[in-house]
Amino acid sequence: MEDLPESLLAEIVKRITRRCDLNSLSLVSKQLYTIDESVGQQKSPSDFIFLPQKGFDPSYDAHNPSTYDFCCDSLKDLRLARMTPGQEIGLRVLLGKCKALEKLWLEYVTGLNDNDMIALSRSCSNLRSISLWLSPQFYDYSCRTSFTDDSLKALAISCPMLQAVELTFFDCDPCWPSEIGFTLEGLLVLIKSCPVSVLVLNGANFFNDEGMEAISSAPFLETLELVDCVAITDAGMRFVTYTPCLTNLTLRLCNKVTDSGVAELGRAHKLQCLIIEGCEGISEKAVQGAARSVHYSIKSASCGELKRVCKERG
């Protein structure tokens, strides 16, 4: 196939309509990937979604990293979902070449570690948005999520334009805090070092009232979304009123927050938008007047709906 004229290969690519089939071209040859990227620019010049069906690249060769030598210097938006890349070198080489990357979404990508994120941060100084959906994996006789505070600190040092951060943790038991590789200390280093204006924490059982107090001094934070953050209580709500630019607050499945905590928000008259969903300790009556715009629901959005909201935000 490498011997075919590029014009003929381009015509072949144009006739492939399914995105998953186009993505598969990148696993065949560098030439086909280049053509796919060129043709794809007619539809979406900076987006690339990689959703491999088998979970890993069977052509990966640790002694031949050129297999992953993709032409992605102009790539701005990258989403990798539910896949397992080749061991060690594969994804690290890819992320290290995405120098123009602005948005990254890693959704339950297994087999990664801090070295991958460090490679990314060193190359992608233009990164503005990062979304990490993580679940525990086995690492050297321990079970935890892929990245640790070393990844957050690398982002803090090398990505000075980072504005939106989403950290979602699935199947992490609050009784076993070590299942999450991040700590409150690492998160605060990131928030204080970068102009983070949007912060979404889902299932972050390490984030507590102390964390709420710490981010109250974040000068750029405008939107805070807390989902299933079991350690947040009414005491933490008091610090919302001290956060200088915070105007949008969402609480989902935060069952230790009660009407008393919401009352703190109402007295401050600070919030533009307040969304309360599935918080059993908060009544609909309590949220009235707590912000200029209020949405209240006894039930929380489903996982699929939350995923769509996050994608639209990015």
Rank of each mutant, 00 (worst) to 15 (best):
residue 219 P to I: 15
residue 240 V to Q: 12
residue 5 P to N: 12
residue 205 N to L: 02
residue 61 D to P: 01
residue 49 I to M: 03
residue 50 F to E: 10
residue 72 C to H: 14
residue 252 R to N: 09
residue 24 S to K: 08
residue 179 E to P: 01
residue 269 H to R: 14
residue 212 M to S: 00
residue 9 L to S: 04
residue 169 F to D: 08
residue 216 S to L: 10
residue 100 A to L: 04
residue 189 V to I: 13
residue 283 S to C: 09
residue 92 R to H: 04
residue 226 L to W: 09
residue 207 F to K: 13
residue 91 L to G: 07
residue 122 R to E: 14
residue 241 T to D: 09
residue 80 L to A: 06
residue 212 M to Y: 13
residue 248 N to V: 03
residue 250 T to M: 04
residue 264 E to I: 00
residue 160 P to M: 09
residue 161 M to V: 00
residue 183 T to N: 07
residue 41 Q to D: 14
residue 291 A to I: 01
residue 181 G to R: 04
residue 236 G to A: 02
residue 80 L to F: 14
residue 128 R to D: 05
residue 137 Q to R: 13
residue 125 S to H: 10
residue 314 G to Y: 08
residue 206 F to M: 10
residue 127 L to M: 14
residue 151 S to N: 03
residue 289 G to E: 14
residue 271 L to C: 13
residue 233 T to I: 10
residue 244 P to F: 00
residue 156 A to Q: 04
residue 24 S to V: 00
residue 304 G to S: 08
residue 256 K to W: 05
residue 237 M to W: 14
residue 179 E to Q: 11
residue 73 D to V: 06
residue 249 L to E: 08
residue 102 E to C: 06
residue 155 L to R: 13
residue 57 D to W: 11
residue 120 L to E: 08
residue 59 S to Q: 11
residue 56 F to Y: 15
residue 48 F to E: 12
residue 149 D to R: 02
residue 187 L to I: 05
residue 46 S to A: 04
residue 18 R to C: 09
residue 271 L to K: 14
residue 75 L to P: 11
residue 68 Y to W: 13
residue 108 Y to K: 13
residue 43 K to P: 01
residue 267 R to M: 09
residue 119 A to S: 12
residue 151 S to E: 08
residue 170 F to S: 05
residue 122 R to I: 06
residue 50 F to W: 15
residue 23 N to W: 08
residue 196 V to T: 04
residue 161 M to H: 08
residue 280 E to Q: 00
residue 120 L to Y: 06
residue 112 L to Y: 06
residue 113 N to F: 07
residue 291 A to N: 11
residue 267 R to I: 00
residue 295 H to Q: 10
residue 145 T to L: 14
residue 15 R to C: 03
